[in-house]
Computed example of a mutant assay.
Amino acid sequence: MLKILGKSSSINVRKVLWTCAEIGIPYQLEQWGSGEQATDTPYFLALNPNGMVPVIQDEGETLWESNSICRYLANKHQRSDLLPVDAMARAQVEKWMDWQATELNNSWRYAFMALVRRSPAHTDPVALAAGVELWNRHMGLLDAQLASTDAYVNGATFTLADVVLGLSVHRWMAAPLEHPPLPAVQAYYERLSQREGYLLHGRNGLP
């Protein structure tokens, strides 16, 4: 059985759990991370030298990086609806997955650490204001894309891009900041909330 190592409240672990829910994959979850088993131990670092979750073990192999894990699971279970086989169609999905992992994630780091985590290292009001502005600007880019499709990130069909971006949308919606009106993002949030996997692992009260 697929083994997932990671804290079930982690946003990156929840990507994998939601992907498993969409595909119908049974798994064993071991809790690792802050407040659980430590990820800086020799055992865990041998699995992932970055000391980060999630990590999966499947068929005698180990894999880390949440977006790569989601791609692997969709490929293994031949879910071409989630990750297309056609080269360009697949690249369009992966483009938005990569944007989530690099551009969008980097935009919210300071604001999230200041407003949600209450980090003592993130108390500069100027940096916070800039962080909120940057986060909202990136969400505006997503809003424009969703307005153009009137459905999911990459078009009419739900894909892995919606798994990773759906988690990010919930993080933004739950953060205690002034949210500009983004009607396409709001409609998307409600559309995703019709999926059981999103209710369980996305819109579940966790930022």
Rank of each mutant, 00 (worst) to 15 (best):
D40T: 13
D40E: 12
D40Y: 06
T41Q: 10
T41S: 13
P42A: 09
P42L: 07
P42D: 12
P42Y: 07
Y43W: 13
Y43P: 03
F44M: 04
F44I: 07
L45P: 08
L45Q: 13
L45E: 09
L45I: 10
A46S: 15
A46N: 10
A46R: 06
A46D: 13
L47W: 07
L47R: 12
N48V: 08
N48Y: 03
P49Q: 01
P49H: 00
P49M: 00
P49A: 08
N50M: 13
G51M: 08
M52Y: 06
V53H: 08
V53L: 10
V53M: 10
P54C: 14
V55W: 04
V55G: 03
I56M: 06
I56A: 03
I56K: 05
I56H: 03
Q57H: 09
Q57V: 15
Q57Y: 05
Q57F: 02
Q57T: 13
D58V: 05
D58E: 14
E59K: 12
E59Q: 14
E59V: 01
E59C: 07
G60S: 10
G60Y: 10
G60H: 11
E61Y: 09
E61V: 01
E61K: 14
T62I: 10
T62Y: 01
L63T: 12
L63A: 12
E65L: 11
E65H: 13
E65G: 13
E65F: 12
E65T: 11
S66L: 10
S66W: 09
S66H: 11
N67H: 14
I69P: 03
I69R: 02
C70Y: 03
C70P: 07
C70T: 10
R71C: 15
L73T: 03
A74Y: 03
A74N: 03
A74D: 02
A74F: 01
A74C: 11
N75Q: 11
N75T: 09
K76V: 05
H77A: 05
Q78Y: 00
Q78N: 10
Q78A: 10
R79N: 04
R79F: 01
S80N: 07
S80Y: 08
D81M: 08
D81W: 00
L82W: 02
L82G: 01
L82K: 02
L83W: 02
P84C: 09
P84N: 11
V85P: 01
D86L: 08
D86E: 15
A87F: 14
M88K: 15
A89G: 03
A89H: 06
A89P: 05
R90S: 11
R90I: 09
A91G: 09
Q92K: 15
V93D: 03
E94Y: 04
K95L: 14
K95R: 15
K95P: 00
K95A: 11
W96V: 04
M97N: 02
M97R: 02
D98I: 11
W99H: 01
W99N: 00
W99G: 03
W99P: 00
Q100W: 00
T102A: 03
E103L: 00
E103G: 00
